[in-house]
Design a binder for these strands. Structure first.
Length: 777
DNA sequence: CTGTCCTCACTTTTT
DNA sequence: GTGAGGACAG
């Protein structure tokens, strides 16, 4: 047997790979070859005669699973890897739930509600219960329900738990438990499960049907869980139960990279693991192969500020590399320009392809300014996350028709399309139907497909509803006999959706039409490909295609054609990835760390771990940037540098100059001034180069960016008295730009800005609250 | 019942 | 700056 692959591992990695029996915990620092260990471990099992069907590997994304399968396939050189049970918790247990659905009273083709569906259903329920959705904010209600489910608290239990109901009463939402109960009932009636149900119901299944649990315990002789630090209680319990028979359970995680506590992940699970399996073997992967010494040291310094952590020492043999650059820009737009400029330069200097670059941010909303700047410089990029393809309105509309065809009880799908394209079934009619269905205890579909029996709708609407029902019925009739593509195309046409979209010739309308085409093409592709594994369903029907689409995310898409692009994503989405050059942008108080995290130490520590994850994505080059002003909720806001920057040892950093030279609203295409850096406190080669090129001028004062920002803040909320009377035509003098003439005044109060033509530097826009203008005539 | 215009709330992070 | 939802007119 060829076991050469074992030589590619360091001693600890090798021991972890070869320790296949019994409980194993692998604490894997960032960049320590965790994925390598996991894949080799599975390959090792396969090489030793273990059947792929008896290995369960739970990963964090579908993409990670797919990549791992490929690598395993490469090592073992057989197609056996396709038979591994490998995927996210959600997709693996959705699959099991479909097998066992009838035990829970669900059909096997149940719908998976995504977050939008859930919220929409909650809104409907609030409406029916006469509750104010300003108090019972749907997203909040859903969070609460989700939290309950992740801790395995059913609606019934929720209502009977004193503490919880008391909590809700105190927060002014005493009916929350009832909403949860109604939500659960409605999901069941719609034959739908939400994301949390996939885990919750799996637990119910295993608890109420010991023989089913036994079956899967027997099947999965070897279980592996990646990113264990991000599992919640519900997931923890599933794993614990499944592993109870063979005890061959291996979890891999890094407490320093736990960033999903907000959705119920529990670092406690790592500690529980030690408690549950006292005889466990523990391996610590501490050598970092990914990043330069500088980056590793910076990351260690940051994470050491956290109180809650497991002891481990991440170290590296790699070169020190260059210092981490800290960039201050005047605005978010300039930050984008700086990033674009830096990418351009680094690429030229180091011969790096675009795919080596990533720009990471805290919130999706930050991507806009970055996109614009990259576009201006013609730098190709790809955005991960944000509005995924499957979340676009037109795609959701067509998918809703598919969903309704497969499962007509799907209430959310029905509400979405019953009057789209418009067919004269209005709001009043729909509301009547929904209320009546709820009263009679039947699904909406049951009611409208037997409309004569229920006397709720009169007049012209009856005919229209009957037509709609007949249309859906005709789709259903072809569900099993027709392949997915033919049926999908038929639905797109007969529903009128294609026609509706085609009629819209605006650029957005054309794009929507193209998206529909893309979806249909995807379905055709699906029909033409053979299923990979032996126990996968063989039919290529629409039912199979739509099955787990709610579980797909952007990150799961194949991106061969996107190979030569810069990646833009949230830090959360960057988890598990690595890039030669990384930009972490928006390092400002109230943004990163988020202002919502400042209430508790726990949340702040999670933000810090998030920063740790961001830093450790970088192999060679790392730039941290922050801006003095930033557009947020449509307004310019002032920003101070993030505390996280100060937590890095200053000797590892290299600062650029504060942006003193330019006006705050000057987004000119002159990128040159960003090329220069100044190291602090000592001079560097970088500085010499910058000074040579004369690309920046030193300010008279030697204040740090932080104090400069603080001073700015003091004056940020009012406009100096002498400028209140500023009018167009006046002559002014500016400390940097010299003499100029006011052309125009816009905005009001603190947002007032002047367009000024300066003799020396041309036209500039200046915010009056910042610009120190003197009126001279 | 449909379409348009206006207001307002929104920004964590994701399966 | 944006998207969803409400008010109002046709």
């Amino acid at each position: 047997m060829n076991e050469n692959y074992l030589n590619e591992l360091n001693p600890v990695q090798r021991s972890a790979v070869m320790q296949t029996d019994g409980p194993v915990m692998i604490i894997a620092g960032a960049g320590s070859g965790k994925t390598r260990v996991l894949t080799y471990r599975i390959a090792h099992l396969l090489n030793h005669g273990v059947s792929a069907f008896s290995i369960l590997a739970l990963t964090f994304t579908n993409k990670a699973a797919r990549e791992m399968k490929e690598r395993i396939h490469h090592i073992v050189g057989s197609t056996e890897s396709a038979n591994l049970w490998m995927g996210t918790f959600h997709s693996v247990f959705a699959r099991i739930l479909r097998f066992e659905a009838e035990k829970l009273g669900y059909p096997s083709n149940f719908t998976i509600y995504d977050t939008d569906d859930s919220k929409s259903l909650i809104k409907t329920i609030l409406n029916e219960m006469g509750l104010d959705d300003k108090i019972y904010k749907p997203s909040l209600v859903l969070n609460r329900i989700s939290g309950a489910k992740n801790n395995l608290i059913s609606a019934q239990q929720y209502l009977s738990m004193r503490e919880i109901t008391e909590e809700d009463r105190l927060s002014g939402k005493p009916k929350l438990g009832l909403v949860y109960q109604a939500y659960e009932t409605r999901c069941f009636k719609a034959s739908a499960m939400d994301f949390d149900d996939l885990l919750f119901k799996t637990n119910v299944l295993f608890k109420n049907y010991p023989e089913v649990l036994y079956k899967y315990q027997d099947k999965f002789r070897f279980i592996m869980v990646d990113e264990y630090q991000d599992t919640n209680f519900s997931q923890y319990l599933i794993v614990k139960k499944l592993a109870a028979r063979h005890l061959n359970i291996c979890v891999v995680g890094d407490d320093a990279q736990s960033i999903y506590a907000f959705r119920g992940a529990n670092i406690q699970n790592i500690l529980n693991f030690e408690r549950d399996y006292p005889e466990l073997k523990m391996f610590k992967l501490e050598q970092n192969y990914r990043s330069t010494k500088t980056i590793v040291e910076a990351a260690n310094a940051v994470i050491s500020k956290n109180k809650a952590q497991l002891r481990k020492v991440v170290w590296t043999d790699n070169n020190p590399g260059e210092r981490i650059k800290v960039m201050l820009t005047a605005s978010d737009n300039e930050e984008g320009a700086m990033v674009a400029n830096q990418i351009f330069e680094q690429r030229m200097q180091n011969q790096m392809p675009y795919k080596d670059f990533a720009v990471l941010y805290r919130t999706n909303a930050q991507s806009r300014a970055l996109e614009e700047s990259l576009r201006k410089r013609s730098i190709p990029y790809r955005i991960y996350g944000g509005l995924s393809f499957y979340k676009r309105k037109e795609i959701k509309d067509l998918l809703a028709y598919f969903r309704l065809t497969i499962n007509p009880n799907d209430e959310e799908a029905l509400k979405r399309v019953i009057n789209y394209p418009a067919r004269g079934i209005g709001k009043t009619t729909l509301e009547k139907i929904i209320v009546a269905a709820d009263e009679k205890g039947v699904s909406i579909w049951n009611l409208i497909s037997a409309l004569q029996e229920y006397d709720v709708v009169k007049g012209a609407a009856v005919r229209k509803i009957v037509d709609f029902v007949n249309m859906i019925r005709s789709f259903r009739h072809n569900l099993e006999s027709t392949d997915a593509f033919v049926l999908a195309m038929n639905i797109a046409k007969s529903s009128g959706l294609l026609k509706e979209l085609n009629a819209d010739k605006t650029p957005e309308g054309i794009s929507r039409y193209e998206n529909i085409q893309a979806l249909l093409n995807g379905i055709q592709e699906f029909v033409e490909t053979k299923p990979e594994s032996e126990d996968e369903v063989q039919e290529r029907t629409l039912d199979v295609y739509v099955r787990d689409i709610a579980l797909l995310t952007d990150a799961d898409e194949d991106d061969e054609k996107d190979a030569e692009k810069v990646s833009l994503m949230t830090i959360h989405a960057a988890k598990g990835l690595e890039f030669k050059s990384v930009f972490v942008v928006g390092l400002e108080e109230n943004l990163f760390p988020s202002q919502l995290s400042l209430n508790s130490v726990e949340e702040l520590e999670e933000e810090r771990r998030l920063f740790y994850v961001a830093i450790t994505r970088a192999e060679k080059h790392l730039v941290l940037s922050h801006a003095e002003t930033r557009y947020r909720w449509g307004q310019i806001t002032h920003a101070e540098p993030s505390r996280f920057i100060q937590e890095i040892d200053q000797s590892l950093l290299e600062y650029n100059e504060p942006p003193a030279k330019k006006g705050f609203l000057d987004f000119s295409d002159d990128f040159d001034s960003y090329a220069g850096f100044k190291k602090r406190p000592a001079a560097s080669a970088f500085q010499a180069k910058a000074e040579q090129s004369g690309s920046y001028t030193r300010r008279g004062t030697s204040e740090s960016p932080a104090t400069a920002a603080a001073q700015k803040k003091e004056i940020s909320n009012f406009i100096p008295d002498n400028l209140n009377n500023l009018q167009s035509g006046m002559e002014v003098i500016h400390e940097k730009f010299g003499k100029g003439k006011v052309l125009q005044i816009d905005g009001r109060n603190s947002e007032r800005k002047a367009t000024v033509f300066f003799q020396e530097v041309g036209q500039k826009q200046l915010l009056l609250k910042f610009a120190k203008l003197k009126i001279i005539g």
